[in-house]
Design a protein around this nucleic acid. Structure first.
Length: 423
DNA sequence: AATCCACAGGAAAATGAGGTGA
DNA sequence: TCACCTCATTTTCCTGTGGATT
């Protein structure tokens, strides 16, 4: 009886036929390839770690740690490096009676002004859920000083993605000088800023540069060689011996180095390649898997970006898509704007002025959806942009069609597009 | 080489949505 | 409720630009 019951629940002849059972093994420790895995060692960044250590060292001698600014593109180990050094410093502090340290670590992500960042810091320090608001900027700063005065003698504030606050940088001026201006008396406050945006540094106001820039450390993009050694170290722990073809790691490194030089990207690529091999039932990971993985990841990146577009961005993108289908690309801003007006009209949307649509088109260009080429053709043309779609037309229509506000127009466009393809 | 077109893009002001404490 | 905050987005107004044309 029991046997019968088991049979009725298991349509497969035996355990071997269960679809979850993989015929091949690729990974030994997959978690090493996950986003949140933290390496213990950073041999490729020894020089930078040294610099960080030198900048933090004064804290152990009872004075200010240097203010520090780390910049470099994403996936260059900035955050890992600072975490690593701060953990060491905190360990040291714990072993010393006369060295008391508070580390506030936060990300300025979505905090677009000094005011918001300040509120965010207060929230972090209080460990509360709500950001204070509704008061003027100076009161907000004062509130922050109050919170800081409850902390230990040495305070290190780490602000990741500090470039989010743009040019609104008063807080960065205030904080390092808090002691000088008598807002804080018995404490040492220093700021560590981390930025992905290399231009951010140049856009800071001179007075901020002056007070914040004790030391700055640049994390130059990893070259293919360094990426290879990073990947090899991870692969050794993550994969079964000898499942990787010889050219897999160099290829992953090369792709990532060509693009951004990001270790994160390289690891993602390696991980995806392994997954693909596993899903296909191959017992080794080969170059084909890497190439396939790259295509998939690239498409995914575009899809994600496209889903988070604002309505106006969608209108602008849609205008270019429509022109693309009509075969009228590359098109000038003027042309795009005409199209834009008719689309917005039909969708009963908010019609923006041309100047603004130009900004939207440009931001689409920055995000990689449009190819925006600026050129100058003299007396007939003057200087102008020419826009065309950079992403795959079909995929773009698919993704835009998911939005119910605009799917009307999208489905029409899709129809036209398919009709054209048939002729 | 001077001009000039047709647009680019900077700056400031306006708007309107979110919030505050009294 | 009111008066007042911040702040992203948008409009308005304006100056800047670079090569074809003269």
């Amino acid at each position: 009886m029991v046997g019968d019951e088991t049979d009725s629940r298991n349509p497969y002849e035996s355990f071997e036929d269960n679809p979850y059972r993989s015929s091949v093994d690729i990974f030994t420790n997959e978690s090493v390839l996950k986003e949140d895995w933290q390496p213990e060692k950073l041999p490729e960044r020894e020089a930078e770690l040294d610099e960080i250590r030198n900048a933090l060292a004064p804290a152990t001698r009872g004075v200010n740690a240097h203010n520090l600014f780390l910049y470099g593109k994403t996936g260059q180990g900035k955050t890992v490096a600072i975490d690593h050094e701060l953990a060491l410093l905190q360990d040291y502090a714990a072993s010393q009676d006369d060295f008391n340290l508070s580390v506030i670590k936060t990300s300025a992500n979505n905090q677009t002004t000094s005011y918001q960042l300040c509120a965010h810091l207060i929230k972090e320090i209080r460990d509360s859920r709500k950001k204070p608001s509704g008061i003027d900027q100076q009161s907000m700063f004062d509130l922050l000083y109050e919170e800081i005065s409850d902390l230990e003698e040495t305070v290190i504030i780490v602000i990741d993605e500090i470039d989010a606050i743009g040019s609104n940088d008063e807080l960065l001026y205030e904080l390092p000088r808090a002691r000088k201006n008598d807002h804080i008396n018995d404490q040492w406050v220093s700021v560590i800023g981390i930025s992905n945006n290399l231009q951010f540094r140049d856009n800071l106001s001179p007075k901020v540069k002056d007070s914040l820039y004790d030391s700055e450390i640049e994390f130059a993009p990893y070259n293919a060689e360094k990426l290879t050694s990073i990947l090899e170290r991870r692969a050794e722990r993550a994969f079964i011996d000898d499942v990787l073809d010889d050219d897999v790691i160099p290829l992953c490194s090369a792709f990532a180095a060509q693009d951004e030089g990001s270790a994160r990207q390289a690891i993602r690529l390696l991980y995806k390649s392994g997954e693909l091999a596993l899903n296909h039932g191959n017992d080794t990971v080969s170059e084909t898997h890497v190439r396939e993985a790259r295509d998939i990841l690239e498409r995914k990146r575009i899809e994600e970006g496209m889903r988070s577009l604002t309505t106006q961005d969608q209108f602008a993108l849609l205008s270019v898509v429509a022109l693309e289908i009509d075969g009228e690309t590359p098109a000038r801003t003027r042309q795009v704007y005409q199209k834009y007006k008719s689309i917005v009209d039909r969708l009963d949307g908010n019609q923006l002025v041309e100047r603004r649509v130009r900004d939207h088109l440009q931001s689409l260009g920055m995000q990689g959806f449009l190819l925006a080429e600026t050129r100058n053709t003299g007396i007939q043309g003057g200087s102008h942009y020419r826009f065309e779609l950079k992403t795959d037309l079909e995929a773009t229509l698919d993704i835009l069609g998911e939005d119910t506000r605009i799917d009307d127009v999208v489905s029409d466009l899709t129809e036209i597009a398919t009709a054209k393809e048939l002729t």
